[in-house]
């Protein structure tokens, strides 16, 4: 069973994603800020991480950077704001496997997740 880490400071999004992913048979862990996400990534292995860019503590992209420094190669999907072109492009440059814009469509996100696992 694939394990997925979700990190977002909006409880709405984490609840929605967790519910949808659990029903599809994934094991889900939730972090509510960047620092927590970073720590949880260190503590155990995940098959995929879905990180919001704008989180308190650490930004999504910064979590990637720190993980890579610590030798953690978990594939990451970044969630970005609608008109945040810069983050979208930068996330791929910094080694995220994909990005999804908010508000996202659930079937689309699920398809991207399936593709990565």
């Amino acid at each position: 069973m694939a394990r997925i880490l979700i990190a977002d400071d909006s409880e709405t999004i984490t609840t929605l994603l967790a519910t949808a992913l659990q029903s599809s048979g994934y094991e889900v862990e939730v972090a509510t800020d960047g620092n927590q996400a970073y720590q949880m990534g260190l503590e155990s292995e995940h098959d995929l991480a879905i990180l919001d860019q704008l989180m308190p503590g650490l930004l999504g992209l910064e979590v990637i950077d720190r993980w890579r420094e610590a030798g953690i190669e978990t594939p990451v999907i970044i969630l970005t704001g609608v008109d945040d072109e810069r983050t979208a492009v930068e996330s791929l440059d910094r080694g995220a496997v994909d990005f999804v814009r908010k508000p996202f469509r659930l079937p689309e996100l699920m398809a991207r997740i399936r593709q990565r696992i």
């Binding site: 909006s10 409880e11 709405t12 999004i13 929605l16 908010k102 508000p103 996202f104 469509r105 659930l106 079937p107």
Partner: peptide
């Protein structure tokens, strides 16, 4: 409250 929160993050068929 919960409905309003969702209203602001959803799109499309959801």
């Amino acid at each position: 409250d919960a409905i309003i929160d969702f209203r602001n993050v959803l799109a499309g068929s959801e």
